[in-house]
Design a protein around this nucleic acid. Structure first.
Lengths: 328, 328
DNA sequence: TTGTAAGCGTTATCAC
DNA sequence: GTGATAACGCTTACAA
């Protein structure tokens, strides 16, 4: 029961009767004499050797870890992102160090520090805290929030999304629109959904309103809003653009409780492109974010510093998809 | 613009005018003379030093990484697991190395090897491949599948879940039950859902049937099954237990298309405890798995070898929850 | 081509 | 308590 210590390159070298460097070369795919190659491979096989990545990392100042910092995995957008990021990184021989923060500044900061200590190869993060201290010397990509100069930001094209939503509702015959949003009071990229919506409404000369409530406030504010605008069993609005699919779902539910029919009485478009549980259908009519494309872009930017040179904010194209809450 | 090399303990020691070991002690919270303590801390602050975890890992044969191997993050059960695992590990100063495999044997095997190379502190995996080569010397916990002797398996109490589902349907007045399942043909822990269901039906003397289709086969098999058992606008079954919430959702959808009312004509209970998008409601009446508890148990077992001693298969308790597809 | 030796940054073992 | 010194396993000049 030899509690034998770890097998090292030295052991392999001794077993194969060659020098240490030769083993290293074989392991790293650098060509060596054919006979040596064979003997080393046999020794590796025989001893069950495998490289020690810590030692590699220590030498080369780079382990293959990329930190992915997200608030959580309950939000389907985040879990889809994490899924694609992880797979895409794996395709490039990089591992994913998953860090969940619930949006907490302290934790986000701690993970930034960790990346430095770990000598991570990069950080892909989704945070709204623009005052985070970003470690020097590690490439950082931000999703959906501009963190500062030199830090590329990958987002969906929120502005176009807002435009498309408004245009679709108008095209579908809506005469009075509203934009609904819940979330952080901090201005961020997602506000452009509203801006695009406002532009399109204004261009088309259609009346509209925008309602934003802050995170702390709870959903009932929207219920109140809807009830206030209900007169003689009809809502003042016949087209709603919700900042997220989740909100769209809730609004639809509330409207149904108010005996209003979706999409007959009121049409709703959400944002995100979430699918129903276990299906290919969208959970509501929506502006679809190209999550895969965004994730691939992040990975690409992390791995190829050169592509980062002139880029600052990169908007991936979005499109409208039917999901039952608009008229065909 | 000194592209100054990394700051090391040596630098701190020189700056503080103390010996290397002293700095190490300070960093690791080992008590040293107060004056030295102060001077070292100041030097650390001044130089912006932080430890190199690769070097630590190389020395101690242990980095704080725990590999979490899952098929994907699209399935809400997996993403919930990953979420809780990651947070729970972080509470114990462990990082999560996320590995997604789509259930592919080769990838799973590769990640097992990686864990060895990384000197990971443990592996928490969800795989149905019992023939994986498990690295020696790394604690492994399996979820929902018994991988072999010595490898603890954490599951929900599938058997009880099956019982509870059948009992609830019977209690709600159902006279003819069916169990529906899609998935891998390999026998596994989840088969116990069926076993529990069968037991309860038999005990109660209620007629029942079980239908299983394999992964490759597509959902329409169930549609055919339902249509075959539709006579004069009534289904032969008035109570269905579906092996997963996702399947329950699909079945509900199909029944609605067949002009059958859920839960009036047919009651359905799923398994898993999935919530609706953006709400606190369950997506269907269901047997709830305690995901958080399972994740915590996994982490606990990974971190405390002693608790692993006599454990083999650990079933976490489940419970029934109403979600609209059963009568109250 | 192959062998040798000097680090990478940390921790631990000693004498002092 | 403090301070040199030797590992940990690997990479990479450089010498043979």
């Amino acid at each position: 029961m030899a509690d034998s210590k770890r097998i090292t390159m030295k052991d392999v070298a001794r077993e194969a009767g060659v020098a240490l460097g030769t083993v290293s070369n074989v392991v790293n795919g650098i060509s060596v004499g054919e006979r040596y190659q064979r003997r080393v491979e046999e020794a590796i096989e025989k001893l069950g050797y495998h490289v020690n990545r810590q030692a590699q990392a220590l030498r080369s100042n780079q382990n293959g870890l990329i930190e992915v910092i997200l608030p959580d995995l309950h939000n389907p957008f985040f879990s889809m992102l994490a899924d694609t990021l992880c797979r895409e990184l794996a395709l490039h021989s990089r591992q994913t160090l998953l860090c969940l923060t619930k949006g907490d500044f302290e934790q986000e900061q701690a993970y930034m520090l960790l990346a430095e200590q770990q000598m991570a190869g990069g950080i892909i993060c989704l945070t709204e805290h623009t005052d985070l201290h970003i470690p020097k010397g590690i490439p950082v990509i931000s999703i959906d929030h501009v963190l500062g100069p030199g830090i590329p930001c990958v987002t969906s094209d929120h502005h176009s999304g807002g435009c498309i939503a408004a245009q679709k509702l108008i095209e579908n015959g809506c005469k009075s629109l509203a934009y609904l949003r819940a979330g952080s009071p901090m201005p961020n990229e997602t506000d452009k959904r509203r801006d695009g919506f406002v532009c399109a409404c204004t261009d088309a000369g259609v009346s509209f309103e925008t309602v934003c409530i802050h995170e702390g406030a709870s959903y009932p504010v929207f219920e109140d809003f809807l009830h206030e605008h209900l007169h003689d069993g009809r809502l003042s609005y016949d087209g709603l653009f919700c900042a997220t699919d989740l909100l769209a779902q809730q609004i639809r539910h509330t409207l149904n409780q108010m005996k209003l029919s979706v999409p007959r009485d009121v049409q709703i478009i959400g944002y995100g492109g979430l699918k129903c549980l276990g299906g290919d259908d969208f959970c509501c009519s929506t502006i679809v974010q190209p999550v895969d494309e965004m994730a691939q872009l992040c990975v690409d930017l992390i791995l190829h510093p050169s592509r980062r040179k002139y880029s600052c904010s990169l908007q991936c194209p979005v499109y409208y998809a039917f999901g039952g809450t608009t008229c065909r």
